[in-house]
Design a binder for these strands. Structure first.
Lengths: 169, 169
DNA sequence: GGTGCCATGTAATGGGTTACATGATTGC
DNA sequence: GCAATCATGTAACCCATTACATGGCACC
């Protein structure tokens, strides 16, 4: 999606520094895919060059300056335009299904052990998701998004469980 | 995941050329993420260098040679080892949810128009998936994988539909 | 004295996409 | 005559990840 719109999105709520944005990314599931320094600091410079944000540099004694980015009208318009474009269907990187595609030819014990630890990982992941949601709260729409996200992982877990049981029989 | 294991997987069924593998990738949902020439032809050379596959070069008059790749014991062992390692939870790139995260601040009409065309795209996509599955057939495990894949998109579609109706009220 | 937070950034590498390049054959 | 299929490969680019680099301050 190009990280820029995510940055504009976060900035549409409140002005932030690169460092703040990095934390926003890692606090979110949906945007977890990035939020590394390299991309964020570069993209912020580019957004500024494109005139979509303004910067306020606050010098601090003995510290790197805080660069607080604020979205402007052009930036809001770009965000709105992006939101209006029909999104792609979700794309899933599903390592489990990739592996299962060729699992038939190997011993059932190998597969069932792999599924067991996969299910365990998923369970832990789901717990973390739910916990995080409790803390974060959010608007009604935000909560629906979080529920949808969780329900995906829940149904993944259910599927793996039934698959495991049917393989063990 | 590194494309190499997908190549080993396809080759574990039958020997294939780079061109054949490219078609395998584009015929599959789960592996649709790649299958461009650049990656495939490079990866095949690397697999050969690593001693996981052998090549049989068939010269043809007035045509590029067919290079038929065959997996060997080391290749099968590598595939088995890969399958045995617990996979990561699925990662979803979900442009819709990204956009909805900041949709609140814009006009409801913008959002509902976007959702309408999104739902339409999804419906078409799902039809294509089902049709493709009918044609392809596959083992019982393969069919369960395909069903799981479809059920994800089906529940995505259901979610969008209810969201749209509740926004329009 | 070590860990973690604040706050900026760069370098190297990996993974993936698009487009380019060649050239014969088959079917509409 | 044009598009599609067979069959190989390369070049340029974009996006993302990991690690490196600096340095002060607060807390245990």
């Amino acid at each position: 999606m190009s990280i820029k719109f995510a940055l504009l999105g976060f900035l549409s709520e409140t002005p932030l520094t690169g460092y703040d944005l990095k934390k926003k990314f890692s606090a979110s599931e949906i945007f977890h895919w990035s939020g590394n320094n390299n991309q964020i600091y570069r993209a912020l410079v580019e957004l500024h060059d494109e005139g979509l944000v303004s910067v306020d540099v606050q010098q601090q004694a003995n510290k790197p300056p805080r660069k607080v980015y604020t979205i402007n009208e052009a930036g809001r318009a770009a965000l709105r335009a992006w939101i209006g474009v029909t999104p792609e269907p979700p794309q899933i990187q599903h390592a489990l299904l990739e592996k299962l595609t060729w699992a038939d030819q190997f011993e059932p014990e190998l597969i069932s052990a792999m599924l067991t630890s996969y299910a365990e990982d998923l369970r832990v992941y789901l717990l973390m998701l739910r916990e995080r949601e409790q803390r974060n709260g959010g608007s009604p729409l935000q909560r629906r998004i979080a529920e949808h996200w969780q329900s995906f992982y829940q149904s993944e877990l259910d599927w793996v469980s039934t698959l495991r049981h049917s393989l063990e029989r």
